[in-house]
Design a protein around this nucleic acid. Structure first.
Lengths: 152, 152
DNA sequence: GCAAGTTTGTTGGCATAACCCACGATCGCC
DNA sequence: GGCGATCGTGGGTTATGCCAACAAACTTGC
């Protein structure tokens, strides 16, 4: 038994409230991810965008935002940043002059692989107390909740 | 099979990355909680503080912050707000003149009960796709992860 | 073919959350 | 009695998720 009555034990009400558990765990997750990615001079949304581009191919900014759950207006700065680092390219769409076509570069693909490694490491730290099957279980449950609220 | 190739399907890389699933689910959770509590003119941290006060009794601002994972400096405004609504009281500690003693009021206890109901409803909406045992499973897994990173 | 509505990129703004630092006052320790 | 630590408070920073507006370009309905 660990001494949890010290001064830092959270209320029982919170520890049994899923929404609290989720948001609190998310805070930790977010910090680990940020720190891990900062070590290779990257940010969380770099991974999101590069992953979507590699999996689905070139897309407009708006379409990319829809996939990654990013607001149209927030995409601009993100893409600027990625484009500055030559990880993707922004070119006007000849067939629709409103749009830009965003394409991942070879350097972007390489960076994506690097981020894959970093994030795998982060998951390991975050989920340290869970066995492999338990991690899958957790991911499965969360994925179902997510799907329900996105394609509901 | 649902049509997920539409325009909104997230990259597979993300849907299998726990940290993404957690932070994304947390966004939904946070929104449901905020909206639910806003309906009774309350905020998420109201519940946190009131719950801690009822369970552990009166405490200093710093101790309260430690329990709820709130920064010392952020506690000030939160407590002001709760004190304005007469849900708790802030009194100087005679035995340590640096500290304030925060005490929940009877109205605070009543409000806490009301928030309990609201939050139970919110959990139900958030975890709609999961059966009762699955919700417990999810809560259990998250609680273990949380404990590991807090009393690690 | 043209008018009305919609989509796209962009700028700017707002609210919240989780930090961090600095300060004066106070306490505990030795 | 002096020194380090703690407490409440104020200030500032950063990231995130929104929403509003706009001009340019597209699509639809007639």
């Amino acid at each position: 038994m660990v001494d949890e009555t010290a001064d830092s034990a959270a209320p029982a009400r919170l520890m049994t409230t899923p929404s609290w558990l989720i948001t609190q765990t998310a805070t930790h997750a977010h910090r680990f991810v940020s720190e891990g990615l900062a070590a290779v001079d990257a940010r969380a949304y770099h991974y999101r965008l590069l992953a979507a581009l590699e999996e689905f191919g070139p897309a407009s900014q708006a379409a990319l935002g829809r996939r990654c759950g990013v607001d149209r207006s927030d995409m601009v700065a993100m893409i600027n940043e990625l484009a500055d680092r030559k990880l993707l390219e922004r070119a006007p769409d000849p067939s629709d002059r409103r749009r830009n076509i965003i394409t991942i570069t070879p350097a972007g693909v390489r960076q994506l692989r690097r981020l894959d490694d970093v994030l795998a490491e982060v998951q390991d730290v975050l989920l340290a107390p869970l066995a492999a099957e338990e991690r899958d279980q957790l991911a499965g449950l969360l994925a179902r909740v997510l799907r329900h609220h996105q394609y509901g």
